[in-house]
Amino acid sequence: MGRTGIKILLLILLVVLPSGVRADDFAQLRREAARITTISADFVQKKTMKILARPLVSEGKFYYAAPSSIRWEYTRPLRSVVVSDRGKTRRYIASGGKMIEDLSGGVQAMKIVLDEVAGWMSGRFDANPSFAASLSEGPDTQITLTPTGQNMAGMIERIEITVSRRDAAIKTVRIVESRTAETRIDFQHVVINKDIHPSVFREVQ
């Protein structure tokens, strides 16, 4: 087989193999996600751990407005709200029947997470050098993020994100922490491109 033959074979493999990671896959996702200006959704989170017999279920609401405004609100079993708007992130916790701002260092960790989530919402799955991103096509598009360095060793093994092929909206996020621990978040009742009042990302009551 000559050089031309090998090139043709490689080209065929790239086209035929559905799980091949290609820069244009992510570029395509970014183009499709660029049509999304807002998302609101309910979510159900299931936390699995060795100490639990059954997953611990949390529920809440999620709001996003491009380019990076997010409200991530848990309603049960505990109420907590993280809002991120114009680069400022604040976290609120329920205490004594009212929401108070969390002034501990935890908010900085949440800012890192929300910045990452905002990136996903705009289709930038391969932008963080801390993760190697791979993509596979099936009924939905699945992106797998694997930590590249040791700084997440023992904390996150991989993150699997399922994206709807219909509208590029994220359907599920599965964070695998270890063989026995994972967090799965399913988004439901997803509404795309419907106006969300800016106060949603700033005010918590």
């Binding site: 159900v44 299931k46 699995t48 751990m49 100490i51 639990l52 017999a53 059954r54 279920v57 079993p77």
Partner: peptide, 19 residues
């Protein structure tokens, strides 16, 4: 307290939802 249950056997992850 959110929830309490007596444990009869070793925990098995992910069998049904707690919610």
């Amino acid at each position: 307290l959110l929830e309490a249950e007596e444990v009869k056997s070793a925990p098995q992850a992910g069998r049904e939802d707690r919610g």
